[in-house]
Simulated scan of single mutants.
Amino acid sequence: MKKLIVFCIFLFSLNGMYAQNNPEKQFDFWIGKWNLTWLGANGKIERGQNTISEILDGKVIQENFEATEGAQKGYKGISISVYNANSKTWHQTWMDNQRGNINFTGFFDENIKGFITRPQEVNGKQQVSRMVFKDITKDSFVWDWESSEDGGKTWKLNWQINYKRAQ
């Protein structure tokens, strides 16, 4: 029995290593149904749901986000994320019910992974925005929406969402 348990742990760790070494699997941790919480501007906890699915023969990740409680209730959005094997780069396009549309490129380092925009002018200043997935476990992670006006040297946290896997 102990050998079986050790073997199962070994297989699970190989799967995690496979995702780290296989860029096409870098965002598989995100797939699933999630309950979301964040601190609203009024200091109260707000809630939402996010369902992340593989589509198109498992080659594309589709996100369906909805804020369900709080000041942002009714805010909805979808994203499509895909790994381009030719450029060896992840790409994401976000669209929402406020006519928002943002294009991102994926990035990775040892501690975080996410998507970043190209520089764009916002209120007369060049700004870069990014979403960061961090503190990733099987059943939870933290998602940060950040912006930078100094080319990415420093980042301002604009929105932080806590993800918990729905049961």
Rank of each mutant, 00 (worst) to 15 (best):
Q49P: 01
N22F: 04
Q49E: 15
N21I: 02
F27R: 02
D28F: 06
D57R: 09
A41V: 03
W38P: 06
Q26A: 11
D57V: 02
N22Q: 11
L39D: 13
D28Y: 11
L39Q: 15
N50D: 12
G43W: 04
Q49N: 15
A41D: 13
I45L: 04
F27S: 04
N50G: 10
W30D: 15
I31G: 13
G40V: 10
W30L: 11
E54R: 11
N21F: 03
P23R: 08
E46I: 01
K33C: 01
F27P: 02
E54N: 08
G40C: 00
Q26E: 06
A41C: 01
F29Y: 11
I55M: 11
W30Q: 09
L39V: 13
W34R: 12
I52V: 15
Q49V: 12
D28V: 08
N42K: 09
I55A: 09
F27C: 04
G48K: 15
A41N: 06
P23V: 06
K33E: 14
A41K: 13
L36C: 00
D57I: 03
L39P: 04
N50R: 12
W34T: 10
N50Q: 14
L36G: 06
N42S: 05
Q26S: 10
F29G: 05
N22V: 03
W30T: 06
G40F: 04
N50F: 00
E46M: 08
E54G: 09
L36M: 11
E54K: 12
T37A: 10
D57F: 09
G48R: 14
F27D: 05
D57E: 00
S53C: 13
N50M: 14
A41M: 14
D57M: 04
T51L: 07
A41I: 06
K33V: 01
L39K: 15
F27N: 01
P23D: 12
W38A: 15
L36V: 08
G43L: 01
G40W: 05
E54L: 07
E46P: 01
P23L: 09
K25P: 00
I31T: 08
R47M: 00
K44P: 09
D57K: 09
W38C: 10
N21Y: 06
K33H: 01
G43C: 03
I31L: 13
D57G: 01
N42L: 07
G40A: 12
G48P: 00
L39S: 13
N21Q: 07
N21A: 05
N22Y: 00
W38G: 13
N21G: 02
R47P: 02
T51C: 07
I52G: 06
I52D: 15
I45Y: 04
S53N: 15
G40Q: 14
N35T: 05
W38Y: 12
T51Q: 14
L56V: 06
N21L: 08
W38T: 14
T51V: 15
I52E: 15
N22D: 08
T51I: 11
W30M: 12
L39N: 15
Q26R: 08
N22L: 05
G40K: 14
G32W: 02
L36S: 01
R47I: 01
T51S: 13
D28M: 11
N50H: 03
D28L: 14
E46G: 04
P23C: 03
N35W: 02
R47A: 03
N22R: 05
N50T: 11
A41T: 11
L36I: 03
S53P: 09
W30V: 08
G32F: 08
K25D: 09
G40I: 04
K25L: 12
K44E: 12
E46A: 03
D28K: 12
G43A: 10
